[in-house]
Write a protein that binds this DNA or RNA. Sequence first.
DNA 1: GCGAACACGTGAACC
DNA 2: TGGTTCACGTGTTCG
Lengths: 174, 174
Amino acid sequence: MNHVEAERQRREKLNHRFYALRAVVPNVSRMDKASLLSDAVDYINELKAKIKDFESEKKRESKRVKMETMDNQSTVTTSTVVDQKRHCNSVNALEIDVKIIGNDAMIRVQSENVNHPGARLMSALKDLEFQVHHASISCVNEVMVQDVVVQVPKEMRNEDSLKSAILMRLDDQE
Amino acid sequence: MNHVEAERQRREKLNHRFYALRAVVPNVSRMDKASLLSDAVDYINELKAKIKDFESEKKRESKRVKMETMDNQSTVTTSTVVDQKRHCNSVNALEIDVKIIGNDAMIRVQSENVNHPGARLMSALKDLEFQVHHASISCVNEVMVQDVVVQVPKEMRNEDSLKSAILMRLDDQE
DNA sequence: GCGAACACGTGAACC
DNA sequence: TGGTTCACGTGTTCG
């Protein structure tokens, strides 16, 4: 009969598949087909759980990275805006920005690094009797940027008058 | 006979395992047992590849993080050392550290925030005709810390003489 | 000899 | 009506 041969081939095929399954499932406890099947099910569930862990971890990681890059972008954006401002009306001479916040003022001065601008700005702030909370001076390629935070007396808390008062005292020392 | 019953239970058990396998393998193309088995093998290989990807990615990630933390540690260590130095011989008056590196000097001054120490140090550096590359001034609780990097002429490149020269000019302005 | 596991041939069901 | 798949009972082997 052809039937018996077909059935024989079917069994053979099935057994090959069982061998293939044995090849990819580790730790096959016992060698019978039933145990192999349940071990395969367990193994697949283990792999699924592992992947789930990785994916949740990856999601957290990507959130962390996204927040970091957003932080970076905000700082970068700020400095970029400032740079554009700088390039807009940039002259060789000197430029000053003043921002008053409460009792304090944030002052930014950009100038050529000649005639000791750091000493001049600090001296001007001393003349005005501003208490310095923080100052940062950086010089790159003969351009000097100074950022200072000072406490100003209340009668001086006007951005324009403050700016001109500083400019005046800076010019005095040229 | 008992034999037929045992065989019946065996077949039943095997079929249950097949059902269980069907439950955990998605996209079972056809419903016959042979296809189920080969699909299961394919699926397991997919999961394995996915996990391998995740693990190599994770390894790269952990290397990156390790390098980042090492960077952080080195900077933290440096500032800690400096802090210890500060606390060691800290007095109310004024303290100065000088480190000469090539053409430049790193100067650190800690003092009370009275009499405008920022202006005084900058003025002293101007008197000495040191070019300021960078300066950072911070004030917390009436204690002011100044860190500056300057270029010094070669005839002044001695740490002790540099320190006393600065100290002298700071005292002049008291 | 018996429990477990497997392979085999056969009948049935289903396109 | 063949082709395919499944379930079943049976024979056989091994510990």
